[in-house]
Amino acid sequence: QIFTCTKTLGEYHILDAPGVPIDAAGTYDLAGMQVEIVDPISDYAGLMETLFDFDAIRSLFNNGFRMRFDAMHAVTGPYAHEILENRLGAAAGSVVNGTPSPDFGGGHPDPNPIWAKDLMAAMHGPDAPDFGAASDGDGDRNMIVGRDCYVSPSDSLAVLADLAHLAPGYAGGLAGVARSMPTSCAVDRVASAKGIACFETPTGWKFFGNLLDAGQVTLCGEESAGTGSSHVREKDGLWAVLLWLNILAQTGKSVASLMADHWARYGRNYYSRHDY
């Protein structure tokens, strides 16, 4: 219908009007058209509070739990500052590289051990933070690291599927899970044990979207570090970090202990992605 409409257009007009200040919430009128500027950080933080036990995570930080979140000079920086430091009480400085930059601070905002090598180095040794994470340029992918413990994206998906019920938003269990074809079968083992459906899809989030729309899955992920759920019908890097924090708060265990427990119960799928 849109294409058909384009074939009938003979001209278009541009409104010469003062610019709308997009950095401040408010409602503006442009030639009779109402333009509303919203605060996406506040809206997103409010949604996260409905899914996760912020009080439990806040207690975790109050008891000395330390984390490092590398926003990689990308879009999640302001969100992480507001949620992790302001609302949850993580120590100031827990969010690093939190100011978005057009050239990502001269780096490459891909959350993997190669491009987030500063985070990997910081997570090594007895004085390292308890938990580390990074997100990518548009904020939809994530990397999870514990002290001396890197969590592969495939294993992260499996752990989240196993323990998502510890977060209020998923306390009723999962309708099903899905993974991309290149992702390891670790989450398949979890789904089998829980008696829920597990779908293998071609690469591409649109295939997950179909399953989410149909209510057949609640959680999905891919080997490239994208993880998401039915809360936005997309992958969501900071959401995955908060779900990990909720699980750590409820179990009282370290990342390494959680991984050891997981492998002891389900077996271990060895998997690595290599980019050429």
Rank of each mutant, 00 (worst) to 15 (best):
L211A: 06
E200K: 09
F199V: 10
R189E: 09
S180V: 11
V217N: 00
S180E: 14
T183Y: 03
L212A: 10
D136A: 09
D140I: 01
A164N: 06
R189M: 12
F208L: 13
Y150G: 05
L157H: 06
L157W: 08
M143D: 02
G139F: 00
M143C: 06
T203D: 13
V145G: 00
S230C: 13
G172L: 10
V151A: 01
L219T: 02
G137V: 03
D155S: 14
N142Q: 14
K206H: 10
S230H: 12
A193H: 06
N142K: 08
S154P: 00
N142S: 14
D140K: 00
G172C: 09
D162P: 15
G132I: 04
K194G: 06
A191S: 07
L163V: 00
A197Q: 10
V190S: 08
R141I: 04
G173K: 04
P153I: 10
N142W: 02
V159I: 15
I144F: 05
C220F: 13
V151Y: 02
S230W: 12
A171P: 02
M181L: 15
L219E: 04
C198H: 07
Y170K: 01
V217Q: 02
S230G: 11
L166S: 09
A193C: 08
S230D: 14
T227A: 11
V177W: 01
E223D: 13
G146V: 00
T201M: 12
G226Y: 03
V151K: 00
T183P: 05
G172M: 10
R179C: 06
L157R: 07
G237F: 07
A175H: 15
R141T: 02
T201Q: 04
S229F: 05
G228D: 08
S192F: 12
D148P: 08
L174R: 00
D136N: 13
A225M: 11
P182S: 14
L211N: 02
F208P: 06
V190F: 03
G226P: 10
G172S: 15
I144K: 02
W205F: 13
H165K: 08
C220E: 11
G173Y: 01
S152H: 11
I196M: 10
L166Y: 12
L160C: 11
E200Y: 05
F208T: 12
A193Y: 01
G209W: 04
D213F: 13
G228M: 05
